[in-house]
Design a protein around this nucleic acid. Sequence first.
DNA 1: TGCCAGGCCCTCTTTAGGGCCTT
Length: 209
Amino acid sequence: MLPSSPANTLVVFDFETTGMSPDSGDRIIEVGAVKLVDGVVVAQFSQLMNPGIGIPLFIQNLTGINQAMVREAPKNQQVMAEFFAFIEGFNLVAHNAAFDAKFLHAEFKRIKKSFAGGIGCSLLAARRVLTGAPSYKLGELIEHFKLPRAAQYHRALADAEACAHVWLKVLSSLEEDHGVTGLSFGHLQALSQKPKQQVQRLIKSWCEA
DNA sequence: TGCCAGGCCCTCTTTAGGGCCTT
């Protein structure tokens, strides 16, 4: 992890996959990511990939990604090697990051790569900071907080962009509601891992530091 | 044949159960 890196300088990413678990043989079929520097998008990465296995009908209906679309796409090994180069030197953020991290590590293991940066979770951070939301689903956070709406949910780049908006909303809420500025990625990681009842005390300690 | 993810979080809890969230 790069704990001292600013909390608004990182890569926000999302995967579309064939299912819920790489341990059950599921693979990534699309990656989307935006690179933020000082909260501004400076680069993006979007690529379908050919996993070499069938895409369940449920996933085709959910994402709009079908067999024909990935048939002509480069294989996972190639795309993930390119994605590794894209994220190198940056921390990552995803919505419900435990899910995407499982696939990230499984695909990198196949190409003998190891990601050493930190992976933050916008879901955990939002639950602690954006209190009062009726739901913490990505799309519903976007709607509830009137953030820029994705053109098409359940496509990787659009969801990564939406996740970036949620992450920046967490940071702006900490700044505007609590007066905390200059947060590092490590601060947000610490906050996300604290029990909810200890979050206010942690934020207060930052203000007093 | 039967099973089929896993971690977080809340509560009518903690020797547990079930909903949320990701595809």
